[in-house]
Amino acid sequence: MANHPFTYQPLPVRVVFGPGRRQQLAAEAQRLGLKRVLVLSTPGQANTAEHLAALLGGLAAGTFSGATMHTPTDVTEQALRVVHDLNADGVVAIGGGSATGLSKAIARRTGLPQIILPTTYAGSEMTPVLGETSGGRKTVIRDQAVLPKTVIYDVELTLTLPPAVSASSGMNALAHAAEALYAHNGNPLVSVLAEEAIRALGQSLPRIRHSPQDLEARSQALSGAWLAGSVLGSVDMALHHKLAHVLGGTFILPHAELHAALLPHTLAYNAQAAPEAMNRIARALGRPDEGGPDPTGRNAPQLVAELNRRLGIESALKNLGLPEAGLDEATTLALQNPYANPTPLEREALRELLQRAWSGQAPR
Rank of each mutant, 00 (worst) to 15 (best):
R351M: 02
K242C: 09
S230N: 08
A122R: 10
H84V: 02
I252L: 13
E132K: 09
N341K: 04
P113T: 11
L232A: 15
P275H: 12
L193Q: 14
G66V: 01
R287I: 14
P148D: 08
H259Y: 13
R31T: 15
L157Q: 15
Q9T: 15
E28Q: 15
I252R: 12
F251S: 09
E77S: 15
K138G: 11
P128V: 11
V75H: 04
A316T: 00
T48R: 15
L193H: 09
V13T: 13
V15A: 08
G248S: 11
N87L: 11
Q302P: 03
Q336M: 09
D289F: 09
R36I: 05
A88L: 06
G90L: 01
L267E: 07
L263K: 06
E77T: 13
L25S: 01
A177P: 11
P148S: 11
I313D: 00
L345Y: 06
Q203T: 11
L102A: 08
T71G: 06
V16H: 03
Q9K: 12
T331M: 05
Q203S: 05
P19D: 02
I208A: 03
L32P: 07
R36Q: 10
T100H: 13
A228N: 08
A180N: 06
D294V: 11
A244L: 10
H84M: 03
A316W: 03
V39G: 00
R283L: 15
A178C: 14
H265C: 12
V16P: 03
L317N: 07
L239N: 10
S204C: 07
A180E: 08
R137D: 13
E306M: 09
G111T: 11
Q336I: 13
V75N: 03
I106Y: 06
P288A: 10
P113N: 09
L303P: 06
R22Q: 11
V129F: 13
